[in-house]
Design a binder for these strands. Structure first.
Lengths: 110, 110
DNA sequence: CAGCATCCGATCTGATACTG
DNA sequence: CAGTATCAGATCGGATGCTG
């Protein structure tokens, strides 16, 4: 991922934050509230642990997601959206709405 | 790109529509009004013709963009957003806004 | 001006196996 | 449960040259 200063336009910056196959779905899940790694893995059908972690790390490094680690056994970690994450989630919401509309339209067309 | 029926969730569908390095910027430009290939190329700094065309084709095949071809020489073509394109543009708008905010925040932090 | 084909390196994704 | 390492295949992106 780029350093912040390298972005020439705002869209490029934000696009980086939601690019990747699973980022919108991860944000969607986290918008419901904090979640552990295993919970996310369960809720997001088809994602591999590697990709989940990789995307979570990217989301953290651009300030969209943070995590809280609880000491002890078994290990417990909670991922959650930052204020910035909630802002970007606004875009994801629209994506979801448009997607629903389109799927509905396509059903009617059939 | 997938066939419509293969999408399991709306977000996956919409994500396909804006994924790719240049799609948000292309939608941004087209939101200002119809534009020719060369106009887009001029307005979008750094894009290659190949990627521009490829993304425009993908946007067309998911019903976000259409084009109108005018016969004659020199050839003239206009790309423009469909109603569906305008809906998705709503998400792009938020991306832009969030991006601007973040860039501003980062400047203050410095 | 609009659009296609090809080649190549970079990046992304996923399966699997392993650590604290 | 959380997280890392690695390897192979798929996809993406960009440069270049060619066609109508």
């Amino acid at each position: 991922m780029k350093m912040r200063e390298e972005y020439t336009c705002p869209l490029e910056l934000t696009h980086d934050m939601i690019k990747g196959k699973w980022k919108p779905v991860i944000l969607w899940q986290l918008s419901k509230g904090p979640a552990s790694l295993s919970a996310l893995k369960k809720e997001i059908a088809g994602i591999s642990q590697k990709m989940l972690l990789q995307h979570l790390n990217e989301l953290q490094s651009c300030g969209v997601v943070e995590k809280k680690t609880f000491e002890g056994y078994p290990l417990k970690v909670e991922y959650f959206l930052t204020p910035r994450g909630h802002k970007i989630f606004g875009a994801v919401t629209i994506m979801q709405e448009v997607g629903i509309e389109i799927m509905r339209e396509d059903k009617i067309t059939k």
